[in-house]
Design a protein around this nucleic acid. Structure first.
Lengths: 336, 336
DNA sequence: TTGAAAGCGCTAACAA
DNA sequence: TTGTTAGCGCTTTCAA
């Protein structure tokens, strides 16, 4: 198949290739009627300039890689997907494509996939955080990158984040609004900044209640299903026992909920639960989990915008995405 | 940043660029010691040949696009992710990258994203089926494509599939092995070929029981959460009532399970459930769903292999991926 | 306003 | 076995 080139169009229009190039890219230096004639011919022939030639000339890929990491799953499976949709949406409009890839895990060490090491992409998108083991490697690469759903933005990178302090406050305040005051906190300290934000939001809401919080109501180590279950055990045995639990993520809430049920606690009558994220899972567990939504699609779009700006040499600021509202489902009951 | 080129390497090695190119690509026509010297210098300098130049020269992208469709049910979210991992794994080893993209939905019509229409990729991967509305467009494009998890392989395309008849048989046989004989079928007819396979597998297992099946035990229209719930209602009201339900997918099983619980049925004591897929959700619902595993990672790998062969001009056959085993969890009880 | 010409980094045909 | 050379399709500089 011999694709038509800019030369063919030039011949058809009776002009030089350079003029066609100018016309296509909307540069000045082409007469109005010449431009129209050229564009009409392009329209008719369905000509599309060869992208690989442009890549070659500009020494640029017009490509961005979404870099997943095995350590992030399975908590983030669904998270990945919605962010990816947002990235795709925005990138399409800006002339970029999104490459899907994952960090390689070989005998216990994380490394970049070949697309990245060969610099066969213009920028990277990370989720939540850049795994510590690859930070120095990332610096060496010198590729622009953004972090989506970064917890806190202390460090020197561009990120898309949401206000988890505010969200945690909203979640706790929701429980308070439903009559609860014995509210426990179930947090994950694997990412300290995330822990901080959610805890502070919880604390702020509790302060307005002016009631002291028993220390064993504040659990920090719920980093996966099992540790969340252990934390839940402690909560259930604590005296007095909380009537509601605020969890920093839906996954934690679900693991804790399952544990409580195993121990014979009725939900939400015995203990109420609220989470953060609104992952797909949350509507399917029983009872469906009440949670505060985080707009991951929007985060993906924002990340793409920021990353393209970085690639093009701008110095964009990190961007905040507004939190969604409370998704009221079946895991919170009234407490009177 | 002025990247080092093949010319620089040639100069350092005291040979011509062509010789370096031969050495890199393992072509014959280079002396053994010259080759070693060149490769050593490449090693030392960390030189990586510019991929965009190769794309330009070969008029090829070394890229494959995973084409999602917005109309696909939320059921497939997790499916996407595991297949994508398989695609990434295999493509990395073969020098390709995976682009993540979605069909565009504009005023009710599906269309291809720009990456595809501009032929800025070498091949496409579809999930389950090619949406009917874009089939003719796909033909016009003339891009190679494969369908992952295709239901049946009647039509003229290359696909990766698994034997759902066999899987359905295994699932039903598992219930029979647990003492059940009043077993209902809950299927989805949105994709007829998939419906066929699962139903026939169910029927084959039931035939061995030599017991007649009341027609209302065979429900075909469970295509989403709500229709699955309605089907479950019918099952619960049918006389005699089945003691177990085989569902063609985990999502259907979960929706039906939730419905049964709403109606006050205890699971698995009242009714047992088994599904197909082993999606992540299945281990988190309550009770955790017993299901037959489908190896989606393997499907992704196989799809990539097939697609690359197609791109390289071979005529590969569709490939079958072996079904996984039964994942025994908490949704099936013994029936005596 | 338009055209001619050079060149991006690589590969492959051909010549030495 | 190795070097020379041309050229892939595009953009941009420079000259007309």
């Amino acid at each position: 198949v011999n694709k038509t080139t800019i030369r063919d169009i030039a011949r058809l229009a009776g002009v030089s290739p350079a003029t066609v190039s100018f016309a296509i890219n909307g540069k000045k230096g082409v007469g109005e009627e010449t431009r129209e004639r050229i564009l009409r011919i392009i329209e008719e022939t369905g000509f599309v300039p060869d992208n690989n030639s442009r890549r070659f000339f500009f020494r640029k890929n017009f490509t961005v890689a979404l870099v997943g990491s095995p350590s992030a799953s399975p908590f983030s499976d669904i998270f990945y997907y919605e962010v990816a949709k947002g990235l795709d949406h925005e990138s399409g409009a800006r002339g970029y494509s999104v490459i899907f890839t994952e960090l390689r895990l070989e005998n216990g060490r994380l490394s970049f996939p070949k697309v990245v090491t060969t610099r066969d992409t213009d920028g990277l998108v990370f989720l939540q955080q850049v795994p510590a083991e690859i930070r120095s490697g990332l610096r060496e690469l010198g590729l622009p990158y953004v972090v989506v759903d970064a917890s806190g933005r202390e460090e020197g990178f561009v990120s898309v984040y949401t206000d988890y302090e505010q969200i945690a406050y909203a979640a706790t305040a929701y429980l308070i609004g439903r009559g609860h005051s014995a509210i426990a906190f179930l947090g994950a300290n694997r990412v300290p900044a995330f822990y901080m934000s959610t805890f502070l939001g919880y604390k702020r809401a509790m302060e307005e209640l002016r009631a002291p919080i028993p220390p064993q109501w504040m659990q920090a180590g719920a980093n996966d299903d099992e540790s969340a279950a252990r934390c839940m055990d402690i909560l259930l045995e604590s005296e007095p026992r909380p009537t509601a639990v605020f969890s920093a993520t839906d996954m934690i809430a679900i693991a804790a909920m399952n544990r409580a049920r195993e121990k014979g606690v009725r939900i939400p009558e015995g203990v109420s639960f609220i989470g953060i994220d609104d992952i797909q899972l949350s509507s399917y567990v029983y009872p469906p989990l009440t949670t505060v939504r985080v707009d991951k699609f929007e985060m993906g779009k924002a990340a793409m915008d920021l990353l393209i700006r970085l690639i093009e040499g701008q110095k964009p600021e990190s961007r905040q995405v507004a939190p969604g509202g409370v998704m009221e489902r079946g895991s919170v009951s009234w407490n009177r």
